[in-house]
């Protein structure tokens, strides 16, 4: 093995953390969505790496399903965003507090 497995995992961890930061810190809802996609992709990298190094197919299959779910999630999430934006024209997440009830 020329590139150790651990390198891939550390790369994945770093990108994931950046995604977490983006999700928690940004005000723009769209960027928060993009951050979620970022996190999903970082996980995909580690899954594909495991799949390759352990010589099993499961990892790749899981990546495939993660991509499916990500597509569904993006579609629904953005639809909710649009529906929300129609009523309250803002996407600043710290001005949205409907959950307060």
């Amino acid at each position: 093995m020329l590139v150790p497995l651990s390198w891939y995992i550390i790369l994945s961890a770093v990108i994931f953390s950046i995604g977490v930061f983006g999700f928690l810190a940004r005000r723009n809802l769209i960027i928060m969505f993009i951050s979620i996609e970022l996190m999903l992709n970082s996980v995909n990298i580690s899954l594909a790496a495991f799949s390759h190094y352990l010589q099993v197919m499961r990892g790749q299959i899981l990546v495939f399903f993660v991509i499916t779910v990500a597509a569904a999630e993006a579609a629904i999430g953005l639809a909710i965003l649009i529906a929300y934006y129609k009523n309250n024209p803002t996407i600043k997440v710290d001005e949205i507090n409907l959950l307060k009830g």
């Binding site: 928690l24 810190a25 997440v93 949205i96 507090n97 409907l98 959950l99 307060k100």
Partner: peptide, 10 residues
């Protein structure tokens, strides 16, 4: 319960 999504995420 602030109602802010990011707080819950945090």
């Amino acid at each position: 319960q602030t109602g802010f999504l990011a707080n819950y995420g945090l």
